[in-house]
């Protein structure tokens, strides 16, 4: 049987991290790379593994690179602190590691929890994530918006979903998306010039894509809220780009 290393990068995740760590008992080795948490994250992690490393956070890809370098095993599973491996997925992983597979990496479908329900539309699902791979065949993607892993070889996908507890409250969603749109706006500053109609028509189109094309209406009120918030944040994103392009302030 192949041995498995699990890597987690953290930064102030005391609310989530224990739920995550508890779900990965299949790991032969757990590597935590903390970005300098000021809460109890590190202490909690030390109860589950002695391989907790601290490196001041600069960006996701460098943190992931460092964590990957620490792994002793060929097979690596990367998981975020707000994610959980359910028993069904754990069994599937175990079975897989018994085999001599031709694959070099596997994608996992990820279902996300929004206001206490699993969302299966709005473009959130399946949202395949490359999370299980051979260390020797893998590199870290350095693009700022889409940090992740790149496998050079044959990839497959797993049957069971990864559970993602990303949006416990509207408050936390907005907080996260506010930060994310700022980063994204800085990436897009040199692209096409933003005009007022981008504030209106692009969000509208986001709303209709999420709510109609991606069947958000089947999620009821949550689907509506989700589509609406996505549209609102799209508007915010274009406003932030406009502010940067028109030099209204150094930060968006």
């Amino acid at each position: 049987m192949h041995k498995l290393s699990v890597i987690i990068i953290t930064l102030n995740e005391e609310k989530n991290i224990e739920r995550c760590l508890k779900s990965i008992s299949i790991a032969d080795e757990i590597i935590v790379l903390d970005g300098g948490s000021t809460d109890n994250t590190v202490d909690i992690c030390r109860q589950y593994t002695d391989k907790v490393f601290v490196h001041t956070f600069t960006d996701f890809s460098s943190q992931k690179r460092l964590a990957l370098d620490k792994c002793r095993n060929e097979w690596v599973l990367s998981i975020d602190s707000d994610e959980v491996i359910r028993p069904e997925l754990a069994v599937e992983l175990e079975e897989l590691l018994k085999l001599e597979t031709l694959y070099d990496g596997y994608y996992l479908a990820r279902r996300s929890y929004f206001l206490k329900k699993w969302i299966r539309h709005c473009g959130w699902y399946p949202g395949y994530q490359l999370r299980l791979f051979r260390k020797s065949k893998t590199n870290v993607n350095t693009s700022r918006e889409h940090e992740g892993f790149l496998v050079d070889g044959l990839v497959g996908r797993l049957k069971n979903d990864l559970d993602h507890f990303s949006h416990p409250t509207l408050f936390s969603s907005l907080q996260k998306l506010n930060h994310y749109t700022t980063l994204e706006a800085m990436n897009r500053i040199d692209r096409k010039k933003v005009h007022w109609y981008h504030f209106v028509f692009n969000p509208l189109s986001t709303f209709f894509i999420k709510f109609i094309s991606q069947k958000g209406f089947r999620e009821g009120a949550r689907g509506f809220l989700l589509s609406w918030i996505a549209a609102f944040l799209k508007m915010v994103l274009y406003m932030k780009i406009w502010l940067l392009q028109n030099n209204k302030k150094t930060e968006a």
Partner: peptide, 16 residues
């Protein structure tokens, strides 16, 4: 508000 990020940070707290 000198930045939209700051505006939204307040927006988030106040709406709660």
């Amino acid at each position: 508000d000198d930045s939209l990020e700051h505006y939204l940070w307040k927006f988030n707290r106040y709406t709660s």
